[in-house]
Design a protein around this nucleic acid. Structure first.
Ligand SMILES: [Mn+2]
Ligand SMILES: [Mn+2]
Ligand SMILES: [Zn+2]
Ligand SMILES: [Zn+2]
Lengths: 139, 139
DNA sequence: AAATAAAAATGTAACAATTACAAAAAAAGT
DNA sequence: ACTTTTTTTGTAATTGTTACATTTTTATTT
């Protein structure tokens, strides 16, 4: 566990972010449960352990993480953002039934090598699918 | 112009939506300027011509259109939804500089035929790119 | 170690997109 | 013409997010 905190601290330091207790805990939460949580989900999960934690701190911290590129924001639903510590290219499947957000690999070359996109500078890519997940279909 | 209203009325009637003045105008706006507007952009554009128009009506109408599937909602930014009367599969490119949202064709077969998605029922698909558009790059 | 300065966390208020709800207006049916 | 139903409207409530001032923590200097 202490090893884990060491590892997470190093990620922050490498990105010029001072490894405060809250920042470590928030990044740890993202990395341990790769569930693409919302701010509220992070808050509800960490609050029992850190009763003084403020939602503003979560917002501040995530925005800080976004700027240095150690997390990605996902706009799957219009209502609220989700956060993903895996920044390598991949797609997302959101289950309408259980609410889970699954990762899946995507070959972006097919998408980028498109006549219509010649001359366009692509910085961000997102593939979002919605439907019913395998697990929910089996019940 | 009258022809146009006839055509739009028929779309609504075919989807069991009574073609009121407001509904016709909102759908007409979506179909004429294929700019993936936000609710506010629709409101600002139509308000001069229809001073009594209420934003609530625009929300009600778009939700009605969504239910019958004659428009699609896009969650490109987290802050607000955009609306698209073209429901055939295609991708979207949002320019960070000028704010335009461009359509481009996407081959979804590559994405769907994915081992990781076997057993998953896909109902909605979205491909969203962000960056700088050709037009802005040339300036 | 005490004092000072800088950075981070917190709580509250402000904001903005969206929905809920009730009243007014318009349309349809009798 | 009267009644009922549908649609539109305005206002208030809700909710995710940001702004801002204050408090707390951490780092630096004396
Ligand atoms: Mn992911
Ligand atoms: Mn489109
Ligand atoms: Zn599911
Ligand atoms: Zn542009």
């Amino acid at each position: 566990m202490n090893q884990n905190i060491e590892r997470i601290s190093r990620i922050l330091i490498n990105n010029n972010i001072k490894p405060s207790f809250q920042r470590i805990k928030i990044l740890e939460y993202l990395l341990e449960n790769k569930k693409h949580p919302t701010v509220d989900e992070i808050y509800v999960s960490l609050h029992p352990e850190i009763p003084t934690l403020s939602k503003t701190t979560i917002y501040n911290t995530l925005n800080l993480f976004l700027e240095s590129g150690i997390v990605r924001a996902l706009n799957i639903e219009s209502s609220e953002s989700r956060y993903d510590p895996i920044t390598d290219q991949h797609g997302h499947f959101k289950c309408d039934h259980c609410g889970s957000v699954y990762d899946f690999p995507v070959n972006f070359e097919n998408i980028k090598s498109n006549k219509f996109l010649e001359g366009y500078e692509v910085k961000e890519k997102d593939v979002i699918l919605k439907g019913i997940c395998k697990h929910c279909k089996e019940n």
